[in-house]
């Protein structure tokens, strides 16, 4: 078996951090895949969420998407897309899978944020002669920002944990150490990689939670 000392040795050995499959590069790949997918999901889902929240049309669509998405296993979705699009396009397939995992929470966050703006404030903005665009820009967006960040927080967690599975379809990311560690019975590599993944997900979640509470506080003051 292995001990905490071995884990520490593995994590502090510079050799495990360098190179194509070193922790530094795998970390960067993990983060890049996550952020690119979140950015694409945001570009697609935020405008749609705002439009639905503002107009009140298509609300049942948001509810249907977010409840159906919970029942679909992210692992299967990723495997199916890589298989159907072809292994040579696996990078696209994985990003497509990650984007479709991220869209439901981001969409729900944007929609719920706009929807939660009190009617009196909305009507007030309109009564002042604001155009629809001005209402969104100066009233809807600032008031719904915390909810939008909340949507991204959920999406971040789901995407980060799905990227862990990417090595199974031939891509990189921090899951590599887990998959290889399992295959080679290298428990120090396995646990060390898991620890770095835990740090990445918890740090990101804390960071987004902090942004969220800061946005809320700014609204109250």
């Amino acid at each position: 078996m292995f001990s905490i000392g071995e884990l520490f040795d593995w994590l502090t050995d510079p050799e495990n951090w360098a190179g194509r499959y070193g922790l530094a590069n795998l970390f960067l790949e993990h983060l890049t895949l996550t952020l690119v997918s979140l950015a694409i999901a945001g570009l697609l889902a935020i405008p749609i969420g705002i439009a639905i929240g503002q107009s009140g049309r298509g609300e049942s669509l948001v509810i249907a998407i977010s409840s159906a998405s919970r029942a679909i296993p992210t692992m299967g979705l990723m495997f199916a897309l890589v298989m159907l699009m072809g292994v040579e396009f696996r990078q696209f397939a994985v990003v497509l899978a990650l984007v479709s995992i991220a869209i439901p929470p981001v969409l729900a966050g944007a929609y719920a944020g706009i929807k939660s703006v009190p009617i009196a404030i909305r009507e007030g903005a309109r009564a002042q002669g604001m155009t629809t665009w001005q209402q969104i820009r100066h009233v809807g967006l600032p008031l719904s920002a915390p909810s939008m960040v909340g949507g991204f927080k959920i999406a971040y967690l789901q995407v980060v944990s799905t990227v862990v599975l990417a090595p199974l379809v031939g891509l990189g990311g921090l899951g590599f150490g887990i998959i290889q560690g399992l295959a080679l019975r290298d428990f120090a590599q396995l646990t060390g990689s898991a620890l770095v993944i835990v740090l990445l997900s918890i740090t990101g979640e804390r960071l987004l939670a902090k942004v969220q509470s800061k946005l809320v506080r700014r609204l109250i003051h």
Binding site: F2, S161, V164, I178, F187, A194, I197, S201, G204
Partner: peptide, 13 residues
């Protein structure tokens, strides 16, 4: 916040 595969393999330790 911890990805499930990471928990599955970290629990033994």
């Amino acid at each position: 916040a911890i990805p499930s595969l990471a928990i599955f393999v970290a629990l033994p330790a």
